[in-house]
Design a protein around this nucleic acid. Sequence first.
RNA 1: GGUCGCAUAGCUCAGCUGGAUAGAGCACCUGCCUUCUAAGCAGGCGGUCCCAGGUUCGAAUCCUGGUGCGAUCACCA
Length: 593
Amino acid sequence: MKLQELLSQHIKTAVQENYNVSLEEVEFQATRKDFEGDVTVVVFSMLRTVKGNPVQIGETIGQYLVTHVDEVSKFNVVKGFLNLVLSDQHYLDFFNTIENFSTFGTVPTAADAMMVEYASPNTNKPLHLGHVRNVLLGYSVAEILKASGKKVYKTQIINDRGIHICKSMLAWQRYGNGETPQSSGLKGDKLVGNYYVKFDQEYKKELEQLVAGGTPTEEAKTSAPLLLEAQEMLRKWEAGDDEVVSLWKKMNGWVYEGFDATYENIGVDFHKNYYESDTYLLGKDFIEQGLQKGVFEKDPDGSVWCDLTDEGLDRKIVLRSDGTAVYMTQDIGTAIQRVKDFPDVNGMIYTVGNEQDYHFKVLFLILKKLGFSWAENLYHLSYGMVDLPSGKMKSREGTVVDADDLIDDMAATAKKISEELGKIDDFSEEEKENLYKTIGLGALKYYILKVDPRKRILFNPEESVDFQGNTGPFIQYTYARIQSILRKAAEDKNNTSTAEGSLALHEKEKELIKILQQFPDTVQLAAQNYSPALIANYTYDLVKEFNSFYQNVPIFNAEHKAEVAFRVALCSAVGEVIKTAFSLLGIEVPNRM
RNA sequence: GGUCGCAUAGCUCAGCUGGAUAGAGCACCUGCCUUCUAAGCAGGCGGUCCCAGGUUCGAAUCCUGGUGCGAUCACCA
């Protein structure tokens, strides 16, 4: 039984015996640092049922607990707060019952499956910092859900069709001179992205000419020859024109190679990719169904709508009057297809920016109205935009922080710091490069994941990402320190005897075990809230406490052998939990740094 | 204009279902490497929790109304 439940029962009994009333709930909280104690019972909240002076009630309950519950060794009452000091034995018992800290906090996978979509790139440009946030968030949430006991499928939807890719294709055709990734040595996604920018530049030139020639600006925007040509290309693509389709395949192929390299670099993967070119027509089949069910209605011009005014939303179009699909139609179809592909899926999470909050609200409502059982378990993991000091990132204008460049920069910073410190001079070049990347990525991922997803991030490339304080590298460093201790302990076999006997716990040891105890609940809470930030904050608390322990409590120079063994075991446990927690954030931990 | 989200130290952020004197990091200032990795530890400085009401024994947290910032409200995706 959990300690709080145990205490709760006894407190209820104590109240019953002393005041002859039955208490519904007992409220606990962690004892504040400035007071002595481990758990605090809030007496204030009992006053509704138990009449009397809160201090006296606290004293009475405290007295009862000390005499009846082994785990409670002391107590004190401050105002309406009953602070309980737990016995060392309670902490030791907990610590010793955990057989293997490497799986501590995680739950074996159950049958209940979720699908997490966490990327939806367009194929006309390379991935940038905005995509990085998206991918890191989704990947981490997928890992957290897995650790909390869910089966998880990871997926991405690739936006591979439409006017945007036609723009790149057209510009390449006109100005590319047959350039390929092989011929230029450029990464495929970068190459295609360059032509997207090129298109925009040429288009703007045309605009200026038209406007100079007297065409009104608005009219020029829609009548520029280059744009008309791109639209013509899109029509040809939809008609299956051989030449256009083969160019499309070729250029998208380059982009996928580039994306794959970036994803691998970041360290994320997917079970299955969905392509819009395959799915954009899927939803149309369900329009008829929806009409029959009365979920949708047809206007005289043939367009089909879903009336959501009862839910406080608008009327939403799901099929154009010419019978073609819109974005919403496609998303309806894709969702249904996913459940067909993975029949055990009973819910989906969409990791998409908050600019699409409204879209997903509508999508989920429609799917519910269509009567799919899994529609009850849809969640839009909405995150804030990543902005630069100069404002929004815009691919067309080249004001983006490129994902690959960013990762390289982070590794370069890690390299600089490592070389200054000179602790790994004996590493091989390959080992060094791996470590720099691990640290650089750790810094970046932690920096992004530790903040609440809803908040927008202002990223200043000039100031870069910290490597000290509440950062990924600080936590990785602590892990490396622990490994160093474990290596030393392994050399000295005398220290490996198991911790036995009654130890008097150091205050720092007690604090550490207390934090370790919270890990399983933290994983569940993070899963319920889809929040990697909770894992990040937890890990930081644990690590901060560990470093304090490390610097204030001798390990190998402890007085008794049993103490040495226990402290080594404690270090090992903390190390394992750091490793697990960081794996949930998609961050690796080094053995040395 | 309607709807949604955000607002906490100079900066970046925590603050769980309401609880004690609102916490970290960065920056700034003091100490600590002959001893388990100083990417660290110990401490100092720093607050009108956007504003005004309300609920409550108790509000950064909940409710109402403002202000500011962002997003969204297309037969675009």
